[in-house]
Design a protein around this nucleic acid. Sequence first.
DNA 1: GTGGCAGTTGACGTAAACGTCATCAGTCGC
DNA 2: GCGACTGATGACGTTTACGTCAACTGCCAC
Lengths: 145, 145
Amino acid sequence: MNNPEKVSKENSSPTTESPARSYRIADLAKAYDITPRTIRFYEDQGMLAPLRKGRQRIFHERDHVRLRLILRGKRLGFSLAEVREIIDLYDVDAGGEKQLVHLLSKIDQRRISLEQQMKDIQDTLNDLKGVEKRVRKALKELREK
Amino acid sequence: MNNPEKVSKENSSPTTESPARSYRIADLAKAYDITPRTIRFYEDQGMLAPLRKGRQRIFHERDHVRLRLILRGKRLGFSLAEVREIIDLYDVDAGGEKQLVHLLSKIDQRRISLEQQMKDIQDTLNDLKGVEKRVRKALKELREK
DNA sequence: GTGGCAGTTGACGTAAACGTCATCAGTCGC
DNA sequence: GCGACTGATGACGTTTACGTCAACTGCCAC
């Protein structure tokens, strides 16, 4: 019985550029430096939906994509609920006209909030620049004496 | 007894451009749309240090500044611990040479993390742009039929 | 067939950032 | 002098985002 549904081992070989590679939970965990617990938690929250082989989860490329979106959202300081909202924005398919219009306004809100964040970052970077200047000056004076 | 230490009322008059205006907790709360509880909590965490008149807190301009820094940090998704770290960066005065050098590296770390966030935002904005395009296209097709 | 893993589920624990009382103190207008 | 506010101070509750067991399962090597 030559089973075509490989899950690990040979599949993790770097030479196999097979279509639809699959990954175990530990693979994802290592790849993104999070714990399996976290991944399961995200699934619980409906943010990931890996396939199953029996009870075991099998992940594919789309799970990677999702996970990267989630982690990016987290780096931006969004709650998981917000991250989910953002990810949901990507599912354009779900639409009658009313839905689509509503989606547009959601997108706009998100954009506005992101632009505010950009501004906050710029301001903070500017502040830091000023602080650094003062620090360097203090250092210089301290060394000259 | 004409008490010069006004705390509220006349002091909140828009005409008095007195030096060192003072504010009550509710003033701050309203100004930044947070609750008094939150302000007290921040004080508990050593992030604010208002003066006291008896038991009552009296806030001044520097508390405003602090609070704005805190809230900006929060908008950027930092934990209060991180916010405190950032704010502490601003206190250049506390330095022997070693401290100052260490401060510089802290500043640099912070800058790197902020730049990563910038990139994340750019990427997300780009994604949203793509999504919007698809939504508009879907809308158009839906209306033409 | 028996360790030894990797993984699963379920339950409980925890840190952060406040919210929500309950109780008490100070002050102001009348 | 007395409500009506505004504020202070605990103390406990709540939500989020996982961590940490404990008990079980499937599979693989020997």
